[in-house]
Nucleic acid binder design. Structure first.
Length: 449
RNA sequence: CGGAGUGUAGCUCAGCCUGGUAGAGCACUGGUUUUGGGAACCAGGGGUCCAAAGUUCGAAUCUUUGUACUCCGACCA
């Protein structure tokens, strides 16, 4: 993408409404624009990151055996009356009336609707287990939206729903999501720790929150230090096999949020030097809730003995529009964002230092073409501007690698590569640049970790 | 929903106390010189001063009522 033809409204000043670093950087880097309290437009750069995050989520959900579909944002109140949540959910649910004065709502979650779909089509135990998910906008009328897209009212959520014959197999479904989540965060470069969690209004008796440690996080968390270093389940993990050893390994060490923490237990189970007490961002939440919805909504299948069985369910949420700021909270410095390659809006940026110079521009154009052809997701700063501004923009928007080429380099036949994360610079023959960049980026795409 | 604060150019803000007809920096447009870490100069465009009502000869400025947004607390992917 040529920057001269892109839409990248970067800001030099910090908009005053932004309090935390990720929000500031998302506004400055031209990723989002606030349209009203808790409502955001995703501008091209931000949207590109959001789509990369979404794609990773989809790949890992699919790998685990979940199946994608898409449900509407607007739901009929009838389903919610059936589950009993129409009244229970309270003011956080945005209620809408259509022209015929029928009650609708903008979905804050989809347990009711997916249960309705399930009960309509699935009749036999032979069709289980089943895990259906979608990635769709949700609306929760938060009392106080804040921190940009970290806590917005409209937000994107991947929500998966599992259906099983009994608790044992439902727990296996839960375990599959547990592993899929670990892998999802790892592919984005994040260390997310599963913690015992409160189940809230969704209900149920088995639940984990996945927490990324960050000073700006909204919850206080307590865990064993070794969890930060634990290896992630491999891509070849057999999701149809027994995942218990992995889950046991992860859950054997103490980890709990402030709602669930028991200080005496924490201190008894974790030696003082291994205690981590910190703030964290909740980037995912998984629940097993048994027949809480299947029972009132009559989601049943016929068992092998001809008897009706009420299915056991779980639900599993990840918010891509929260993950983006969470990643920024984890990866930034004073100059801007430092994207991990796997979610970077562009993998590398080529900076033409003297766009007014014909020779320099010809050399940059040629190199840009080669990098594109090599499959690198490239941004090309071909604007006719001072070098300082270009460096500042490249640093701000956090592209992992900067290829810097100007008249000086043309003369010596060399290009400079700056690593955004380490600040390290290397100079190499222009002809070697494509191979070098490919070699740097390829392993960091994390498609197979 | 309680408490606090802010709405003036695309962005950051000054002007308000003490009423007299709209400002700065950055950004933007044209031009000249520039070009290895946010360049310089010249010329220019851009504002229902959040809204309504009131006070006044006169309101960005004073009063009232709305409204939007932000921050602090209790709820949440």
């Amino acid at each position: 993408m040529r920057l001269s033809q892109y839409f990248l409204p970067v800001l030099r000043d910090v908009p005053k409404e932004a309090e935390i670093v990720s929000h500031r950087l998302m506004l400055r880097a031209g990723m989002v624009r606030q349209q009203a309290s808790g409502l955001y437009s995703w501008l091209p750069l931000g949207y590109k990151v959001l789509m990369k995050v979404q794609k990773i989520i989809e790949e890992e959900q699919n790998r685990s055996g979940a199946i994608q579909l898409l449900m509407p944002t607007i739901q009929s109140a009838d389903l919610w009356r059936e589950s009993g949540r129409y009244d229970a959910y309270g003011k956080e649910m945005l209620r809408i009336e259509d022209r015929h004065e029928r009650d609708f709502l903008y979905g804050p979650t989809n347990e009711e609707m997916i249960t309705d779909i399930f009960r309509t089509y699935v009749k036999s135990y032979k069709d289980l287990p089943l895990n259906l998910y979608h990635i769709q906008w949700k609306f929760r009328d938060e009392i106080r939206p804040r921190f940009g897209t970290m806590r917005s009212r409209e937000f994107l959520m991947k929500d998966a729903y599992s259906f099983d014959l009994d608790k044992d197999s439902a727990v296996k479904a839960y375990q599959r999501m547990f592993v899929a989540y670990l892998r999802t965060y790892a592919r984005m470069g994040l260390t997310a720790i599963p913690m015992r969690a409160d189940t809230g209004p969704i209900g149920g008796d088995l639940s984990h929150e996945f927490i990324v440690l960050a000073d700006t996080g909204e919850s206080e968390v307590f865990c064993h230090k070794d969890l930060l270093e634990k290896p992630i389940p491999a891509p070849g993990t057999d999701f149809r096999g027994d995942l218990s050893p992995i889950i046991d390994d992860w859950t054997s060490l103490y980890a709990a949020t402030e709602e669930m923490v028991n200080t005496a237990e924490f201190e008894a189970e974790v030696p003082a030097e291994k205690r981590v007490s910190a703030r964290g961002i909740e980037v995912g939440h998984i629940f097993y809730f048994g027949t809480k919805y299947s029972e009132p909504m009559k989601a049943t299948v016929t068992g092998p003995d001809g008897k009706e069985i009420t299915v056991h369910m779980g639900s599993y949420g990840i918010g891509p529009t929260r993950l983006v700021p969470a990643i920024i909270e984890a990866f930034h410095d004073d100059d801007g964002i430092i994207w991990p390659v796997s979610v970077a809006p562009f993998e590398a940026v080529l900076i033409n230092l003297k766009a007014g110079d014909a020779d320099c521009t010809a050399a940059c154009d040629a190199l840009y073409g080669e990098l594109n052809a090599a499959g690198i997701d490239m941004l090309y700063d071909d604007r006719d501007q001072g070098a300082g501004g270009k460096f500042a923009t490249a640093d701000l928007i956090g592209i992992p690698y900067q290829l810097i080429l100007g008249p000086r380099g043309i003369k010596s036949g060399e290009v400079e590569i700056k690593h955004r994360q380490s600040g390290e610079r290397e100079t190499l023959p222009i002809g070697d640049a494509v191979a070098r960049i490919t070699g740097l980026i390829e392993p960091q795409r994390r498609t197979d970790i």
